[in-house]
Each structure stands twice: as C-alpha cells, then as structure tokens.
Computed example of a mutant assay.
Amino acid sequence: MSISTREKIDVLQKFLKDYHNEIRSKHIDNIVALRIGKKNINGKPTNVYSIVFQVVKKINPDELDPKFVIPKKIQIDFPDGKKRFIKTDVEETGKFKFHFGIASEVKSKYSIHFGSVGLFVGDNLNRTYMLTNYHVVAESFISKRRFRYRRPLSQTKSDVRIIDRNGSDINGRFEEGLISHEIDAAFVELPIDPDPRLNILPDNSRIQGRVLVRPLPPSIKNKPVIIYSFYNPTGVNSVISDNSAVLYTDDEKIFFEDIIQIRPKVTQGGDSGGLVLNAKFAVLGIIVGGDNLCSYAIPFYKIDDFKNINIL
C-alpha cells in the first residue's frame, strides 16, 4: 500500500508532537526547534522530507560523545504497518528570543519589557479587548511560574498602557491570558465601545476575516504573509516556511507545538504580539518571537479556541 506525500507529512508531524521532548532530551541546550522539511544537501533542498533539527550552533559530530550525536535517520511506524527510516537534517538558526523590547506599544505593570498590539477584538457582552502575547504583559507572572491569569474581581484598576504611533495612549485592564505549549495570548479590556475602525491598517486596508482551518495544512507552506508590528507599522512581507514546527524557549516549562515558522526573519525585540495576515488580509496569527533566521507566530485558531472572540 502506497502512502501519499500529504499522509507522510501528517504522520511525521504527529510523530514530532508525540515524541519531541524525548528527541530533544539529549540536546536540550542546543535544539531551538523541530520541524518537518525537505532535506538540504550542500545548501540545496532535495525532494526528500526529513526531520529538521534547528540548533543554536552546529557542532562537529567528532567533538561529541556518540550518544549525543543527532542520528542520520529515525525509524517511525506508519499506519500501513511499515517501519520507515526518515532522514534528519541540521540547521543552525541561533537562539530563540521572545520579541518584546524597549519602546514598543504595549506596556504592562507586570513586565519590564514591551511588545506590540496585535488586534482589537470583542466578545458577546460588547466588551472591547486588545490582543497581544501573555509574555508581553505578564513577564513577572511567568518568572513566578504562573502561566495562566484571570483578573480577580478585586482588581479594578488599569494595569496596561497602549501607546499609538502618534504618542497618544489608552489604559486598560489585563483581563485574561495563557502561555502553554499551544498558545501565548493575553486580552486587555479597554474602556471603549467596539469599533471596527480600530483594526484599520496603516494603508487604510481592512482585515478580511480570519483563518480558522485547524490544524493549518502543509499547503500553506511557501505562502506569503504580511506582518504588522511596532517595528513594521506599515507591514512587511515574508513567507511561511513551516506550518507545524515545535519551538523551544530558554524556559524548560515553555515550548510551543504546531507553531507557524516564517522565513526570512522580519521581526525583532518589541514585535511580539504583532499581527500576521495572509495575502487576502485574513488573520493568520500573532508574532511570538524569533531566532537568527526565522520569525514565529501562534496560529489564530488556537487563540480562538482559548477565548470566544470576534474581530472588530
């Protein structure tokens, strides 16, 4: 029984999701991300799909204890009952960093650093929220191992400040957020009525809905995206290089599965929370960070699963 390329990719992505912690365990300080991609030989892509190890720095295998060398092939069980050896590849991408930074648009009393406004959304109670990353507004919570937040009724004061490009600002309350292996999102309630004009882009374009296909299909690879963030206020173009990467951070408790990888990297510190749109201006996700080669985004469908929201 033959297996299609799509079926093969689905099996490999499920394998990564189930076993990535085990695969990474011997290389925890060096592996940045794992993904499924075409193997490169002498810098040129082949047609062979492989398990790609993205590392902080490539190390000559001769300098390593043999038990720490990344295997050239990994045996995987397929649904047709056959065991197949899947080739591996190693790519040096540098260290992953959350993209919060000085002088960005979102400032929280719970964070030293700053980040970007991603999107304005509403709920069925006619409340208005600003969407960004949890790590942008809850940095001190994360350091205390608090990975989820819901505003207590006793907290009635504003604790997040949003500053626009003209220097005017508005204060809001951090209402709810979560950082997990699926999501990095925070909602800040604003004292204003829902207004679609909040989401008009700098060139006066309008957002055209959202991408809610779950999970994102392999066919989305190589598709163009537009990113709007603090350091890219008028939008910057890039391309999706992977639809389902596994990404690791400096914090062993925080990693992300099924994350969007965007290449070339077009973001920097301060761009976390920035908006990612597809070529039709539909919301695809929000920026979470980057390494030396790639930017990364949380798929919007995961945010929608966490909190029932409407794009204004």
Rank of each mutant, 00 (worst) to 15 (best):
N42R: 08
K17N: 15
K14R: 14
I41H: 05
K38A: 05
K14S: 14
Y19G: 08
G37E: 12
H20T: 14
D29P: 05
Q13E: 15
K14M: 13
K44V: 10
L12W: 02
R24V: 14
I31P: 09
H20F: 13
G43V: 02
K14I: 14
L12T: 10
N42D: 08
H27F: 13
I31C: 10
K38Y: 13
P45L: 03
N40V: 01
K14W: 07
L12C: 12
L16H: 11
I9G: 10
N30D: 12
K44P: 00
L16W: 13
L34S: 01
I9L: 09
K39C: 05
I31M: 00
T46S: 04
D10G: 11
H27W: 10
V11L: 09
G43R: 05
I36F: 07
I23D: 09
I9A: 03
F15G: 08
A33T: 00
K26L: 15
L12A: 05
Q13W: 02
I31F: 00
S25V: 06
I28E: 15
G37A: 11
V32M: 08
V32F: 00
V11M: 11
G37S: 12
K26I: 03
K44E: 06
I36C: 05
K38G: 01
N42H: 02
I9C: 09
Q13I: 09
N21K: 15
